[in-house]
Structures are given as structure tokens and as C-alpha cells.
Design a protein around this nucleic acid. Sequence first.
DNA 1: CGATCCTTTGAGAGGTCTCAATTCGCGTGG
DNA 2: CCACGCGAATTGAGACCTCTCAAAGGATCG
Lengths: 240, 240
Amino acid sequence: MIALSSIEISNQRVAPPRQFGEANARVQLDTPYCISSTQRLQAKDTVFFEGDPASHLYEVIEGVLKLYKLTPDGRRQVTGFLYPGQLLGLNVGESFAYSAEAVTKTTLCRYPRKKLEEALDSHPALARRFLRATVHELAVAQDQMLLLGQKSAIEKTATFLLRLSDQNRERGENPEEIYLPMTRTDIGDYLGLTTETVSRTVTRLKIAGIIRLCQHGRMNLTDIDRLMELAEGDDCHFAV
Amino acid sequence: MIALSSIEISNQRVAPPRQFGEANARVQLDTPYCISSTQRLQAKDTVFFEGDPASHLYEVIEGVLKLYKLTPDGRRQVTGFLYPGQLLGLNVGESFAYSAEAVTKTTLCRYPRKKLEEALDSHPALARRFLRATVHELAVAQDQMLLLGQKSAIEKTATFLLRLSDQNRERGENPEEIYLPMTRTDIGDYLGLTTETVSRTVTRLKIAGIIRLCQHGRMNLTDIDRLMELAEGDDCHFAV
DNA sequence: CGATCCTTTGAGAGGTCTCAATTCGCGTGG
DNA sequence: CCACGCGAATTGAGACCTCTCAAAGGATCG
């Protein structure tokens, strides 16, 4: 029940693209969601590793997850951070294409894939919903490619902070105070930067009076307009 | 008809993840595909721009396309190259999230989205097919994030060449001779490098005897094993 | 209150970029 | 058939941004 509601909410949150024939009526999903179970994790617990058999689909109920891929020699690319309401494990074949780890204490809802597949057969609207969610993830991934391939450290960092701010706005929370439960290393691996570069960049933003660090990983964005300029490459007059 | 067949082929080519309840029987798709039309393009012709209303879904019949996104100040990230059999325009909402341009003379098959949406309603298996295709694109996008965020110029370039080689293998073509119709600038914008860096890296591979440039944008991969090592970061003993 | 992990800061090295010039490839027209 | 012209590719030199290595400072938790 909680999950059904939550998926509805999540689809609202991500600004549904409304494509490929959106059903207006709320879908009857009781069958698949009756079989869900809850899983609780501590920070740094692993949900699954890349290559594990993809037995479940997950939904984040509470907490933050990070998804990542590794190179053979141990370098890591964080492909995303997952917040409550987001789905995990849509984009896989028989095994997961990435690893998932809890950043904070986390509560997940698990759905066996086998059962979901049956649900897809009998509830075509559910397939469209998954398609829509996957399409949205793909669009996000393409934005991230633009960031990783073309942007400088300051642009990457500003963009990252603004995304969290927008996420807050969409949730009806304060867009000027964001929560950064992940480490600088996690952020660096997400932005294609090193820990030190992230730290230095954040310090520059702090000195420039654009952000302010608070306790417990909280950060105030005191000049969002300036941050938006920096995110788009307008870094003139931004000396250390 | 040609397109129906082609989509079937394309799904074979990309190693279908076979998830969420793959229907064994070939789907009855006559209805949507009766309404397709053909579009021919010259090199450098634009199929659509980012932000254009997403009126059609496309399938590449012949030729090569590139997809890209732009920053406000004109930097460009090529998010992918599309070869025959691949679909274009799945991952959009009401408007396209990226631009698409012909690299070579190209033939496309166009399907009106409105009609496709109706088809999705009456052919749930089609929705699953689209979901599978989108999921595959997402996995590719995540690989690309790893490349853009973590890999060096030599690793990026070697990975790119190997992908084209694998594509050839999957098509039953010669994996040791690949076709590079795109410019060095296109490749650079795809790999997050400059034109000059791509050129220098290709030259190093050439000098090392790992590749050989031929006429008309063709390239011979004379040492694929070495290329695989380089793609994974084993660049010891690879001095200029 | 010590231990540990994370963050910050510094100095120097290095890979990639920028700017510039030359060479190459290919289509065009004489 | 060859010369021309233009865009693309190559090559060079130097600058710069980010990384690497190192150490100090700070936060959190038992």
C-alpha cells in the first residue's frame, strides 16, 4: 500500500513526460504490490553488486542510495543518487548492470521480478509506467553525459548543487537548503572529479559567498542566481 | 514491412536483455507499421533539434546519425551514434531532449507518435519491446558515464574503437575493419576530448602498430587484444 | 576522550586544452 | 586529366586545469 502510493508520488515528482498514451485512470496495481516486502539498510550496506542476478525491483522509501560502476582497476563512476520515491533496478537484464549502496540509513520496498513480469502481462498500463520512468532516467543520463564530457569543475559542482535544490523545490522543501549525506569522494566520483577538487571547488563557492556550510552535511545556497550562471559556464570574475 | 523486420533484427543485434516477461511469439505489429513513411537525408542534414515537438519515432534504415546536446555557450556533447536497425526518439517527452543529425547519407523510417501510442494500448507486447530497447539504451548511457568520468584519452579512444568492432561482430561483419564516417570533432565531442587530442591519440595507436588507417574513413584494428588492454587502463609500455 | 574517517589545504607533476600552422583528402571546375 | 579550393586532420609549442601525493585539521562515535 505504502509503495503504491509512493510510486504515484514519485511519478509526479519527476514531472512525467506523459508519452506513449498515458492512462488517465489510476491503474489497479493491488496484485503486484501485495507481494512486496520491506528491507532496511545501514549506511554503507550494499543492496546488490553489479553482476548479481536481478531478482527484485526496489523502491526507495526513506534514505539515500548511490549507484556506481567500477573499472577492472578499481576506478568508480557513481551513476546516480537515489532519493525516496525513486525506483531501482528497472534498467537491467538478467543481472544488475551496476552496484547499489546505502549512503544513509535506508528503507527499501522490494518486488520480486518474476511477479512483476506477470503483472506486466496483465496490467499493460504498468509497462507504460515503467517505460516512462526509464525514459526519464535516460534523459537524466544524457544530461549527465553533457556534464561529464564538457563541463569544468566549477560548472559541474554548481550544476550538482542546483539539481539537489530543484529536487527540494519539487518536493515542496526549501530549495535554498540542501542535504549532502554523501562524501566528497562520492560527489567526485559522480562528477568525474577527485575528492580534493570537489573540496577546493566547494571552498571557492564558500569564499565567494555563494554557499554556506552548516552542520550535519547541510548546505545553504545563498545565491542561487549566481550558482546558475556558474553552472552554465559564466565564470568570469570568479577568481579564488 | 521492412521496418517490422528491421526492428526484429535490431533487437537481436543489441543482445536483448529478455526481461519483464519477454513474449516468445512474434508480436502482431501490422497496424502501427502500416502507417510508416520513409525519409531520406544528406550528410549534415538535421532530423530534428532539441526542443522540437516529438511528433515521430524514427528507425535508421541506412546510414549513420549522431545525437547531441548543446550547452548555452555552444559546447556540444555527442550522446551517441546511431546505425541501421536502431531506434530514435524513444526517450522523449513532448519534445526531443537532444538534436539528431545525419553523419552520412541516411534513410529513416518514420512512425507518427500518436499512432504508436494507440498501438501501445492495443499491443502491450510492443510496450515491453520499447521498454527493453530503452533499458538497453540506459545501460549504454551508464557505460558512457563511466568512460566520460573516469577514463583517459587513450582508454576512451580504445574503448570507442572496440565498440565499433563489437558492433561489426554482432552484425556478422569484419570486426577488424571498422568504418568511421564521423569527423574527429564528432568523436571528440562524444568522448569528452578535443579534436586535437583524438587525432594525437589515434596517431599514437597507429605508430604503435595497433591500428592502420585506410581510405574513406576505414580503419584496420590489427591488434584487438592490445586495444582491449588499453581500453581497461593497461597503458604501461605505451610511450609515444 | 581517543580513534577513525572525512575534509581541507598545499605543492608539484602531468594530461589535456588552446592557439597556430601545416598537411592531407576530396570534390569542383577548368 | 589535372589544378584549385575548402574543410578536415595532423602536428607543434605553451598554458592551464585537474590530478597526485602529502599532511594537517575537523567531525563523529564508541
